[in-house]
Design a protein around this nucleic acid. Structure first.
Lengths: 344, 344
DNA sequence: TTGTAAGCGTTATCAC
DNA sequence: GTGATAACGCTTACAA
């Protein structure tokens, strides 16, 4: 089937090129008769307007970019990322936008810049990781491209963002543990360069002090969100801090690693040790034992970020919004009342 | 900073528009002096050619699409998909291509079609799932767009594809189990609409018959790759088929679900029951116990698919290639010699 | 309601 | 080596 362009359609429908344009864009001021003739040709030949040409003419692409740094295969593979992306993607599709996804590793900064930012190809950008933002914030401001971040960053108070209430999530987790009678609760946290870590640590501390628990900085670890770090930290603490009976992990993957360490040391979960995670990833339900965790609306975060971005692109939204979503405790099988040391 | 276009650059450099075009495209036939003047302006103003306009003029976008069906959050979140995508993405970046990612759910078929296929926006497409292909194969042929599939499909012998050797992978897994003395080996497989399932089942059967093991169709299950199906099937078999002492799962996620069922029934892995998975996902290393599995080069599959596609787009590659990659057994802790029933 | 014509920012052909 | 000029396929004033 021969490829049509707007002029050929116009000729076949015996109208001018502008009439065709109005019809396919649903503009008013076109007679029923003309519309019918155009539609007939369009359908018969399955004509679709050329997006590239349309983009050039309108100076907009209806395409947004998603930027995320490649921190390592482990963290990409944990499902959080995919869910977030899915939320973004589906909201975009509903609104008639396409999404262009880019991982970026630190060695790629320059290429990224060339490829993404100055190409006039994107109407806006969502940054999934604050790391990206630091590098690009100035650029975005310079070229005046709408942007929204997933995760707040006080360094950029002028940028819209979406996040969970990290403080509240951590608080809920630790409260759950305290309610079960635990008095020695370790805390393993992720990326220290990121605002959420501060808030999760605060929530973790506050819940403890609210319950009269002594916060021991010796059992707070900040490294990365990988299983590996959960595993290593827990292994260390089993030897050095046998007094802890429970653990709050700032991600489900961290919890997964910690639980393996516990298992290898023959410490039974939840009978002898309780752990709660953070994220509510699909896999957390199938850990051994199924993980009690703080579920965050990951898909929802992506959806909301896309919503705000598209509203900004279309100028429906002009003020700065930094949106916080609600985390929720999901009780499964990894926690039990604190082990009472029944002396013989 | 005011936005430049090619004409303004030309004016500032005191040359014509065509000279500028030649310079930025590294074409020959431009004097040293002219090149220098142009580059000076380009660098000073950080001029970047408008990609959309360039695409319109060249009738190519240097953008490829990745199509994958959204089967469910669980399967998307397992890490396989992300690794595959990462392989595609990084190869594309190296070659100067951008990638446009689309999930597609069955309700979106039409929109997909509108959005992706007829927009003249993509130079080629990678399909991550055969399901997509069935729907689109004709369309692609019709509009003559290069395509490569991840996963072979004999229905489309004319389409390039990349896959692991599924037969060999399953064979290796079952051989490992047989070598350990297991004689009753269950098999849980994924998507039955997909060619790989046939090959994995053949490998599973052949290894058993090679080792003189009776293949019992009662302990072959074909459903989906989700943890849930692994969990449910194993739960059923624990009651109905207590004779099996080992299990081959066609994905790590399936194995994860099965292991939870085993755990809940107080069956010790690997002492009383062995399981081997398939995929070698990052999370498999942290399962309890760490999973022995058939690792496939997931990242490599993506990379290879992108390589073939880009070669096709550029006509470096004109013949049909259906590439098979090598799976590898990774021995961890989920298998042990068959339990010898020591009678009292 | 319709058609003409001027962009949108490039590339590519072809004289010079 | 260089510079007009015609595509590329569409949108959008503006005039009719």
């Amino acid at each position: 089937m021969e490829k049509l362009n707007i002029d050929k359609v116009a000729k076949l429908a015996h109208v001018s090129r502008s009439v065709v344009s109005r019809v396919i864009n649903n503009h008013p001021n076109v007679s029923e008769e003309a519309r019918r003739r155009v539609m007939e040709v369009v359908e018969m030949h399955n004509y679709k307007p050329n997006t590239v040409a349309r983009n050039l003419a309108t100076q907009s692409t209806n395409q947004i970019g998603v930027l995320t740094s490649r921190i390592g295969d482990e963290s990409l593979g944990n499902g959080y990322w995919t869910l977030l992306y899915l939320g973004i993607f589906e909201e975009c599709i509903r609104r008639g936008y396409n999404v262009h996804l880019s991982f970026y590793s630190s060695s790629m900064k320059n290429e990224l810049h060339e490829l993404i930012l100055n190409e006039h190809r994107l109407d806006g950008v969502i940054c999934l990781n604050e790391e990206v933002t630091k590098f690009t914030a100035d650029r975005f401001a310079e070229i005046d491209m709408p942007i929204v971040m997933v995760g707040h960053n006080p360094e950029f108070p002028e940028i819209c963002s979406v996040d969970v209430d990290n403080y509240k999530g951590a608080y809920k987790a630790v409260k759950h543990l305290a309610d079960l009678g635990h008095r020695r609760i370790g805390g393993i946290f992720g990326d220290q360069n990121v605002e959420e870590t501060k808030h999760r640590i605060s929530g973790y501390r506050k819940a403890q002090s609210d319950y009269g628990i002594l916060v021991d900085d010796e059992v707070i670890s900040v490294s990365s969100y990988s299983q590996k770090d959960g595993y290593q930290t827990m292994n260390k603490w089993i030897k050095e801090h046998p007094e802890i009976t429970a653990l709050f992990c700032a991600s489900d993957t961290l919890a997964m690693g910690a639980m393996l360490a516990l298992h290898e040391n023959n410490i039974k979960i939840p009978e002898e040790f309780s752990v709660v995670g953070f994220d509510g990833l699909p896999i957390s339900r199938y850990m051994i034992p199924p993980l009690t965790t703080i579920e965050q609306p990951t898909y929802g975060k992506g959806e909301k970020a896309a919503k705000i971005l598209i509203d900004k692109i279309n100028k429906y939204q002009t003020d700065i919004v930094q949106h916080n979503m609600e985390p929720e405790l999901i009780v499964r099988k990894s926690c039990a009342p604190a082990h009472v040391k029944t002396t013989i």
